[in-house]
Design a protein around this nucleic acid. Structure first.
Length: 828
RNA sequence: GCCGUGGUGGCGGAACUGGUAGACGCGCUGGACUUAAAAUCCAGUUGUGGCGACACAGUGAGGGUUCGAUUCCCUCCCACGGCACCA
């Protein structure tokens, strides 16, 4: 047997492919295009572990098949290189974040190249490259000009002892990870993007994405969280306070009123006796994160303000409380509480002994609405000690009495609108996007504050507005960006009036670059426009986008939002950026935990490639389990795919080179080959890469049993294997140039060959095992022609000796026949 | 807590649209080859009972629908991803 020197083979072909520019995507537009994209990585200091490339391997398999199927494939890679870790590393080690980032990129790139990916490296991008972020800044300015960016005071996590803002990740149970002090929510001047303006389109257009996984669409729907209802105006001490409710039909059941602790009216309406307690409560609430506040399981807390609100439907006075389960960011920051029909209100009322008034009763219909109610996680049946959140019909509700929930809602809204006490309204859970960070290592926000002219965007021809070179990246102590300390940077002139002005010192979040980077690959060196229109029309949209499920909501919603905006200003020609979306499941460590330095269970791909080869690792990662599921790594399992590749080499010696057209063909093997081509092609298309590999294993096992293998069969095996094990397939392919009659085809890369097509007739089963059941239990199987019809199948099954034994003396109730599958005899 | 995903042999997993549960791989057991080992090949490998043919049980737990359920429905348990400043 030939020795499998993976190292030699892999290095050789990686060089050859690069030399021949085999994977360069052509802009000539003479072939159908296919744009397949990986979510680009953040190059961290730790380098890749074996889990990272799983998605990249899969897209590479897909891209190579598409290439062989005649597509002009765009399969690029780049770096999402701004971000907090580089900045923290820089502060700690006194290295410029750019240097650290460049070093990390070098490592990542080396590690990716050793796996033999078909990336078009001529299109490599980097979000920290000024030529790239020039356009990130350009998009921001366009949004600012369209009124989609606004300033607002938004809270950050503030550590009073470190005097710095902290990411949510740097908190441990509400305390600073470093020094352990209590974290405060400190309002900072921030830039916010009005993503809510796009809420309806982001939601509705999900329907235009049939090739997205349902689960991800579902998550986005819930993230946007559209709910229909009404805004209702209450009066507190003569002040109008609007609440939003999805259940205007329960207005008569409102027995108290709750304001968020941050609500501006709180201070105004609180009575002197309650002042102390209210203030204490507000201070405490400021310490809690949103998640802590909304936890349904947590005991509700609140304080009475001493004030009363007037319910507009019946002029009843109901007590006004403040409670942290009401959020300023959702709805209006105020709610009418209907304890009889809302679980949280119920709990609150029980705890503080507030009146509960039932206004909806269960009807026969409400039982059938279980599933709808379930999504609200509420009780659909009336139990003695719980709120009833289902639909039913109204009681104790004056003009709504006897109406079903939906009708009651409508009637109430009409009534409110007529009396000018409220209106129909839609609210979203989606919040505007806090778009600024008080950090150094991000894109500077290209705005200038002028006392005379207000806020003025930097002129387009001055972009990119580059990050200044500085010595220190330490936090300022005020919570502002380190840029605020650089006078030469901050002080500038106003582009409008020429007077002295100050630059914006906030930078953009890491999400900025990743919200549009896929467009840059199309035209990576353009410095005149975001993207050339003609190229964009050809390459867009991304046909297939693959990446981690953790991006299901934020990254993918942000990118869709930016894309729609770019569409609106005419910069791109399609409304949705990604046609097909697939998420990759994690590779866990052998112990079943996440791979992490902390657990010491990280497996480095360098070692695996060194020992077993890139091809064995590629095949293994595709074989180890369903693509979108988390699977534990097993180096033992990897041995199996390595053996499989060795077997492919071993059976090469059995290949009979075709000397003439007339020859005896091995029918069974040929049939299996066509079945395998069919399965592997459709499995790759559907991203069922694990079963594609096992289908090839079955074929190779059969080939091994034969004395001789037709050249044609082996050649096709190589072709379907080549996307998975490109180096090995290419090596064997070229080795045939010496022996074969048809030398020419073996002198050109296997990736320039045509992807094999299967013969329908040969891929079809002639004979099948017909399953014979009695009362649904398997009792016998018989081999029959695949086309066997019902009457014949029934006759055959009743002739079976084994079946006779079971049926004897029993009454046959009926016989079920499933074509090509089974006969089930039901007896009594 | 909320949203999403998943739970099948000793292990990773397979099973079309409700139709033979355990493909393929790992591991393990026995055998062939070898002075020996490695590699390779052959046979076996869900559990229980049986020499065997075979029978019964079996896809996180419990219930339901069906001629038939890993697959559909209900209740529950467990693990993982996300929850807006980690990317």
């Amino acid at each position: 047997m030939e020795k499998y020197d993976h190292k030699k083979i892999e290095e050789k072909w990686q060089k050859e492919w690069a030399k021949d520019d085999l994977y360069r995507a052509s802009d000539s537009q003479d072939k159908p295009k296919y744009y397949i994209l990986d979510m680009f990585p953040y190059p961290s200091g730790a380098g890749l572990h074996v889990g990272h490339p799983k998605g990249y391997i899969a897209t590479d398999v897909f891209a190579r098949m598409k290439m062989m199927q005649g597509y002009n494939v765009l399969h690029p890679m780049g770096w999402d290189a701004f971000g907090l870790p580089a900045e923290n590393y820089a502060i700690k080690n006194k290295i410029h974040p750019r240097e650290a980032t460049e070093k990390n990129i070098e490592t990542y790139k080396r590690q990716l190249e050793m796996l033999g990916f078909s990336y078009d490296w001529s299109r490599e991008i980097n979000t920290t490259d000024p030529e790239f972020y020039k356009w990130t800044q350009w998009i921001f300015i366009k949004m600012f000009e369209k009124g989609l960016a606004y300033e607002s005071y938004e809270p950050i996590n503030w550590c009073p002892s470190c005097k710095t803002g902290l990411a949510n990740e740097d908190l441990e149970g509400g305390k600073c990870e470093r020094c352990g002090s209590e974290i405060e929510q400190k309002p900072m001047r921030q830039w916010v993007l009005k993503i809510t303006d796009y809420a309806d389109r982001l939601l509705n257009d999900l329907e235009k994405l049939p090739e997205w996984e349902e689960s991800i669409k579902e998550m986005q729907k819930n993230w946007i969280g559209r709910s229909e209802g009404a805004e209702v105006d209450f009066q507190i001490d003569g002040e109008k306070v609007t609440v939003f409710t999805t259940r205007p039909d329960t207005l008569f059941g409102a027995t108290f009123f709750v304001l968020a602790p941050e609500h501006p009216l709180v201070k105004k309406v609180t009575t002197d006796e309650q002042k102390k307690e209210v203030e204490k409560y507000i201070k405490n609430a400021a310490k809690k994160t949103e998640m802590e506040r909304t936890e349904l399981a947590k005991e509700k807390t609140g304080v009475f303000t001493g004030a009363y609100a007037v319910n507009p439907v019946n002029n009843e006075k109901i007590p006004v409380w403040i409670a942290d389960y009401v959020m300023m960011g959702y709805g209006t920051g105020a709610i009418m509480a209907v304890p009889a029909h809302d679980e949280r209100d119920w709990e609150f009322a029980k705890k503080y002994d507030i009146k509960i008034k039932k206004v909806v009763v269960e009807t026969d219909d409400s039982k059938s609405q279980k599933s709808k109610v379930k999504s609200q996680n509420c009780n659909s049946k009336i139990k003695n000690d719980e709120a009833f959140c289902g639909e039913g019909s109204n009681i104790n509700s004056s003009f709504l009495d006897g109406l079903k929930t939906n009708d009651a809602k409508e009637k109430m809204i009409a009534w409110l609108e007529k009396k000018d006490l409220g209106k129909r309204a839609v609210h979203y859970k989606l919040k505007d996007w806090v778009f600024s960070r008080q950090r150094y290592w991000g894109e500077p926000i290209p705005l200038i504050h002028c006392e005379k002219c207000g806020i003025v965007p930097a002129p387009e021809d001055e972009l990119p507005l580059k990050l200044p070179e500085v010595e220190h990246y330490e936090p300022t102590g005020t919570g502002e960006s380190p840029l605020a300390n650089i006078d030469e940077w901050v002080n500038t002139t106003c582009p409008k009036c020429g007077g002295s002005a100050k630059r914006e010192t906030n930078t953009m979040p890491q999400w900025a670059g990743s919200s549009w980077y896929y467009l840059r690959y199309i035209d990576p060196h353009n410095n005149k426009a975001l993207v050339d229109k003609d190229k964009e029309r050809y390459w867009s949209p991304v046909d297939f986008y693959v990446g981690g499920a953790e991006h299901a909501t934020r990254h993918l919603i942000y990118a869709r939002f930016w894309h729609k905006f770019l569409y609106d200003i005419g910069a791109v020609s399609y409304e949705e950026p990604f046609t097909r979306l697939q998420h990759v499941g994690l590779i866990l460590a052998e112990d079943g935990r996440k791979m992490s330095k902390r657990w010491g269970n990280v497996i480095n791909p360098d070692e695996i490639v060194e020992k077993y080869g890139a091809d064995a690792m590629r095949v293994y990662e595709m074989f180890m389990g369903p693509f979108s599921q988390a699977v534990s790594w097993s180096t033992n399992g990897l041995v199996g795919t390595r053996k499989f590749l060795e077997k492919v080499i071993r059976i090469k010696s059995k290949v009979k080179i075709q000397k003439s057209k007339l020859q005896l063909k091995n029918q069974n093997l040929e049939r299996l080959l066509h079945k395998t081509i069919k399965k592997v092609s459709s499995d790759i298309e559907e991203f069922k890469l694990n079963t594609a590999v096992s289908a090839m294993m079955i074929l190779v096992n059969e080939m091994e049993k034969e004395e001789e293998i037709d050249e044609n069969v082996y050649e096709n095996l190589l072709k379907i294997l080549s996307p998975f094990a490109p180096h090995l397939a290419e090596e064997i392919w070229f080795s045939f140039a010496k022996a074969s009659e048809d030398k020419s085809k073996y002198q050109e890369s296997i990736f320039k060959q045509k992807w094999p097509e299967y013969d329908h007739e040969l891929a079809r089963d002639e004979k099948i095992e017909l399953v014979l059941q009695v009362n649904g239990k398997l009792r016998d199987t018989i081999e029959v022609d695949a086309e066997t019809e019902e009457a014949e199948a029934k006759k055959l099954s009743l002739e079976s000796e084994k079946i006779k034994k079971w049926v004897e003396g029993k009454k046959i109730v009926k016989i079920i026949f499933v074509r090509g599958k089974l006969v089930n005899i039901v007896i009594k």
